[in-house]
Structures are given as C-alpha cells and as structure tokens.
C-alpha cells in the first residue's frame, strides 16, 4: 500500500457567495495519476488552485504528506507541488535555460552549474536539446508547454498539478505534450490532471474524478467511468464528446 501524498478533506470554496466547490474529499497516493473531468465552470481549476493556495479555500483541510497546507509557510509547500498552466506562462524575458534554472537556483539555492547540467539533460529528454538558449517567443506552443513541464519537474516536486495544459494547443502539438506526461506517469510521478482530452484521460489515469456543480459526482477506474458511467450526469457529459448521434446521414 503506497503512502498518501495529498489528502483533501471537506474542501469548500465560494465566489461571491456562490459555492464553487462543495465538500470535496479525496486522497492521492504516491505514484497515482488522478484525472479530473467535468464541464467548464464545474470547479476543476479552482480545485487545483486551492491545493497550492493560489485561491484561498473557505473551508476544509488539505494535507500534504500528512501536514496541513496553509496558514503557515506557503512558499515551502509550493516548492513541493509543481503546477503547469494552460497558457504555459514561461518568463518571456529569459531564455529557456533561464526559465528552467530560476526556481532551483533561487528558491532551492542549488548550485547554478549543477542545475544547468540537469536542465540540459531534462530538455534533451523532451526533445528540445537545441532550444537551450531560445526565447519563449521563438518556440511553438507545444515546445513552450514541454519547457513549462520541465521547469516544474526541475523543482523535484512531490506531485504535479496540470491545469488543462493542452487546451491552447493545435492537435498535432497536443500529442507531443501528452507523450511527456505519459512518460512521467510511467516513471511514477504523482499527478492531478485537469483535461478535456478524454482519450488521454483514459490512457493516463489510475482514477477518474468527475466533478459536477462543485461536487464529486462520480469517482472510479477509467475503464469503468468511460465505458460504464454510473450516474446520469456522467453519461450526459461523456455524450457531449460523441458525434455519432448527430451525424448528417
């Protein structure tokens, strides 16, 4: 039985009085990949953002390796939880190497030469060895997102939060980014992934959580969720990805 990395207990978040997350509880074991799906506005991104306190939860508890998150030192917690966004958010004024080494060198105080050597090796693994000194604006979307993934990984986080990281990409670039994520999953990286790529979700997930109206409406193995959903809401949601019923002829 693997260790529990992250535990969420009765998490609640409201915006202007309206509940976005209601009483969310689940836990993530070491090496587990959990994919969170749901219609837009269901609270998926808010859930991720509450975990590393980009949003302040209104209630409940979040534990990282058994220790409560929040209140005290958020900087230390964020060093252990990597996050990648839909819009890449590389630092435009630094080249790729600068983007990759800023966190380890400044936040973790590791020696620059050591970090840069590691960054080079990591970049080569995602097929971008020749982009070391490129500026973000010289990269394609897929390349930027791979750099962003490497940037988060070089912090050696306990887990990764991926917030719709392929939503802004062209289809052929989606593949190159998702391959990196699949590799990470195989290497045992603990991940919490929000995505609209259902085929990818099915391939990468150990467990799927379906959020609806700020609740966990359904939770289960990908096989079961995608092929035998238990709830009517999940069936409706999965149907929006099918076009068979509305074919022209």
């Amino acid at each position: 039985m693997e260790k529990t990395v992250l535990e969420i207990r009765n998490l609640t978040k409201r915006f202007d009085g309206a509940g976005v997350l209601n009483d969310i509880s689940f836990s993530v074991r070491e090496g587990e990949v959990i994919v969170i799906v749901g219609a837009s506005g269901c609270g998926k991104s808010t859930l991720l953002r509450c975990i590393n306190r980009l949003e302040q939860p209104d209630g409940g508890e979040i534990l990282l390796d058994g220790k409560p998150v929040g209140g005290g030192d958020m900087v230390a917690v964020r060093r252990q939880i990597g996050m990648v966004f839909q819009s890449y958010d590389l630092f435009p004024h630094m080249d790729v190497l600068g983007n990759l080494s800023l966190g380890p060198v400044q936040a973790l105080k590791r020696p620059k030469a050591e970090v840069e050597a590691e960054a080079k090796a990591a970049l080569a693994r995602v097929g971008l060895a020749d982009k070391l000194h490129a500026l973000p604006r010289q990269l394609s979307g897929g390349q930027k997102q791979r750099v962003a993934l490497v940037r988060a990984l070089l912090m050696h986080p306990r887990m990764l939060l991926l917030d719709e990281i392929t939503a802004a990409l062209d289809p052929e670039m989606v593949r190159e980014v998702l391959n990196v994520v699949l590799d990470l999953a195989r290497d045992g990286m603990t991940m919490l992934i929000v995505t609209h790529e259902m085929r990818f979700a099915e391939a990468v997930a150990d467990r799927v959580i379906f959020l609806d109206g700020g609740h966990i409406a359904e939770e289960g193995a990908p096989d079961q969720f995608f092929h035998h959903p238990q709830t009517e809401r999940a069936r409706q949601f999965l149907n929006t990805f099918e076009f068979d019923s509305i074919k022209k002829s």
Binding site: N52, L54, V75, A76, R78, R79, I81, G82, M83, F85, S87, D89, L90, F91, P92, H93, L102, G103, Q106, A107, L108, R151, A152, M155
Partner: peptide
C-alpha cells in the same frame, strides 16, 4: 497576472518573484 502565479508556483518568495519575474518585465 499569471506571471506572478507562475513565479509563486516555482516556490519563489514574493520578493524573489518581484525581482526576477515581475520587475524586469
């Protein structure tokens, strides 16, 4: 504003974030 969040997510302190990420831009 997401630049600020990206810096914080890397574990930079708010002061480091200001110095290395926000102010240069």
């Amino acid at each position: 504003p997401v630049q600020n969040e990206a810096g914080l997510c890397l574990g930079l302190t708010p002061a480091q974030n200001l110095r290395f990420v926000i102010l240069p831009q």
